[in-house]
């Protein structure tokens, strides 16, 4: 295809992506370097019959003028990145010098909003991803050994947790795990303590969120692995049998190596997706126990005060995190491309 034709074919989608994806990323980076202007204050003296009082009022006109002249706000450099709501270097170093033990240091740092969110986001990402891969793999093996006729039926129900809107899926689970829900009551019964409640316990909430994460994403892993199982080379499997390999050995040395590229693929995709964990925190009403980077951005944006700069800064930090997780995917795509060329 000629460059010219390509250009016209590609223009609409390129424009859409430039204006609504590339430009906002740029705008977020710029916003994160500025803070809104403070109101211009003027001191006036009111003199009455009982003497003079000084009062400070906002000069509305001058404030509006200043905001008009520099709509971005005051340049703050990396100031917002270093403040208490984000990387908080000052607080971290203070915690380092004042705390007696490592444990105390971590608990001090854990109180800072950014590190609190980071702790949950990373735990969630690195616990959920391997477990969902394992579960997906086992489901795929089990479904593959089923009778052909009921496979479709099983696949239908298996897809549901993934297809259903994350917020709706998390609500469905939350209402059951809630202390008044059916599973919640069951847990209370098993644990023998009627006070056990999701709302009151941080570890329980973390576990519930991770169970949701695995439940939601395992079907994706299952579908990918199931498709991969259909292409396992039958000759290799047969020769393994002739050589006396047990069923376990066949799975371990023939099936698993065949699926390795798919495992990498699912792992890379899911690491990125789990890093953005957001909806379950809303659905489980979990923000008192667990926050994520995405949740902080949402919270800053939806509050009354509309803290755009703070949200933009967290956005940039999130993008950096995604970029780190994305780099192996890019390297892999680059190798594929080189391999084909």
């Amino acid at each position: 295809m000629k460059h010219r034709t390509f250009f016209w074919f590609f223009l609409p989608t390129a424009l859409a992506m430039l204006i609504f994806i590339a430009a906002p990323i740029g705008s977020v980076v710029i916003q994160s370097l500025f803070v809104p202007h403070e109101a211009v204050l003027v001191e006036t003296e009111n003199c009455g019959p009982f003497g003079c009082t000084k009062s400070v009022v906002i000069d509305q006109e001058a404030t509006a003028e200043l905001r008009e002249a520099e709509p971005l706000g005051r340049f703050a450099g990396l100031g917002i990145y270093l403040d208490r709501g984000h990387l908080a270097f000052a607080e971290v170093s203070e915690a380092w010098t004042t705390s007696q033990s490592i444990g105390e240091f971590f608990s001090d740092v854990g109180d800072l909003p950014f590190y609190r969110a980071m702790a949950f986001t990373l735990t969630y990402t690195f616990v959920v991803t391997p477990l969902l891969i394992a579960l997906g793999f086992v489901i795929a093996l089990a479904v593959n050994s089923l009778n052909r006729r009921i496979r479709g039926f099983v696949i239908f129900f298996s897809l549901l947790p993934m297809i259903v809107t994350p917020l709706i899926g998390s609500l469905t689970l939350y209402w059951m795990i809630d202390s008044r829900g059916v599973i919640g009551e069951f847990i209370q019964y098993v644990a023998g303590s009627p006070d056990l409640s999701l709302k009151a316990s941080t570890p329980l909430m973390w576990i519930a969120l991770m169970v949701y994460g695995i439940w939601h994403s395992a079907p994706f892993a299952f579908v990918v692995f199931y498709a991969g199982l259909q292409t396992v080379p039958q000759d290799t499997l047969e020769s393994a049998q002739i050589d006396g390999a047990t069923r376990w050995q066949q799975t371990r040395y023939v099936v698993l190596p065949h699926l390795t590229p798919l495992v990498t693929f699912v792992a890379l995709i899911q690491l990125m997706d789990n890093f953005r964990v957001f909806e379950p925190i809303i659905g489980f009403n979990a923000s008192a126990h667990a926050t994520s980077l995405s949740w902080i951005i949402f919270n800053d944006l939806s509050g009354e005060t509309n803290q755009l700069s703070a949200a933009a800064t967290t956005s940039v930090l999130t993008i950096i995190g995604v970029a780190i997780l994305l780099s192996p995917v890019l390297v892999r795509t680059w190798r594929d491309f080189k391999g084909k060329a």
């Binding site: 609504f20 430009a23 977020v28 951005i297 944006l301 755009l308 890019l330 795509t333």
Partner: peptide, 29 residues
């Protein structure tokens, strides 16, 4: 041409961006 590869890579990077981070870029304009 080579630019096809780079366009696909750009699309992959865009796909990875959390949507909520883009939203904070949309609001002011």
């Amino acid at each position: 041409y080579n630019y096809v590869f780079w366009l696909l890579i750009a699309a992959l990077i865009f796909r990875a961006m959390p949507q909520i981070t883009l939203v904070s870029g949309y609001l002011p304009p």
